[in-house]
């Protein structure tokens, strides 16, 4: 029967289990975003330093993190670190570490972009008014960068949510895995369950990300 598959969703606690699975990845992305915002701001300021060594270091870090697929980074953190250093990181901890490293790089680049977009005359004018460096930063630079940064940071959050779906491939039990368990458990009674379950997961991700990207779009338009 074609339409029987959807019943699986409402049997027992199946739907609740899917939501719990989604929460696993959402939790990782939330933790990673919360940690990478302050680190990224520091990293972005670090990248604007004129010192050649700090420039080279930050550039290599940024380029390496950016050019590697996030899944490769996850593999390195989960399989490689465990093996090489004998550290037994759980999948969740290594996922958080990887996404913090990645988020810091991306956030840092956003902060750098926002910082260098401020024209030099802003600094000169602040200096002419007798502001010191901290005052210049606090009253002149931060208010102007914030408008640009907040929509981009919100966008980064949606990218983070989408990317954390990869953790299933290092063996975490998140929404896709739970979905697979439900499908396998009902394989003979409801053969079409896969269509509905994966369709619902698709929809759940959309519902998680769409409002956030709408918010970012709105703010971007208003503050332009």
């Amino acid at each position: 029967m074609q339409d029987s598959g959807i019943k699986v969703l409402f049997m027992g606690k199946n739907f609740l289990r899917l939501l719990e699975g989604l929460w696993v990845t959402l939790r990782i992305s939330l933790i990673a975003v919360i940690i990478s915002i302050p680190l990224g701001i520091l990293f972005g300021m670090f990248m604007t330093l004129k010192n050649p060594i700090s420039r080279a270091v930050s550039r290599v870090y940024l380029e390496f993190i950016r050019i590697m697929p996030q899944l490769v980074l996850l593999f390195i953190a989960y399989f490689g670190v465990t093996r090489t250093f004998g550290l037994n990181l759980s999948a969740e901890v290594s996922a958080v570490i990887v996404f913090v490293l990645w988020g810091t790089a991306e956030m840092g680049d956003l902060v750098r972009g926002a910082l260098i977009s401020i024209p030099k005359h802003q600094y000169d004018s602040a200096a002419a008014l007798g502001m010191n460096r901290i005052q210049t930063f606090w009253y002149v630079v931060i208010p102007q960068t914030m408008r640009r940064l907040i929509p981009l940071t919100i966008n980064l959050t949606t990218r983070m949510i989408k990317t954390t779906s990869l953790v299933v491939l290092i063996g975490m039990t998140e929404v896709l895995k739970v979905g697979k368990q439900i499908i396998d458990a009902n394989r003979f009674e409801y053969p079409t369950a896969a269509l509905w379950i994966y369709g619902v997961i698709f929809l759940l991700y959309f519902l998680a990300c769409w409002p956030i990207s709408m918010l970012a779009k709105k703010l971007e338009k208003r503050w332009r």
Binding site: T158, S165, Y198, W210, S213
Partner: peptide, 23 residues
């Protein structure tokens, strides 16, 4: 565009590969 930009590729692939054969 909204659907494609707000869902992860892995989920799209699971739907295409495991879901669609059922119809």
């Amino acid at each position: 565009i909204e659907i494609s930009r707000n869902t992860p590729l892995l989920v799209q692939l699971f739907f295409l590969y495991f879901g669609l054969p059922k119809i």
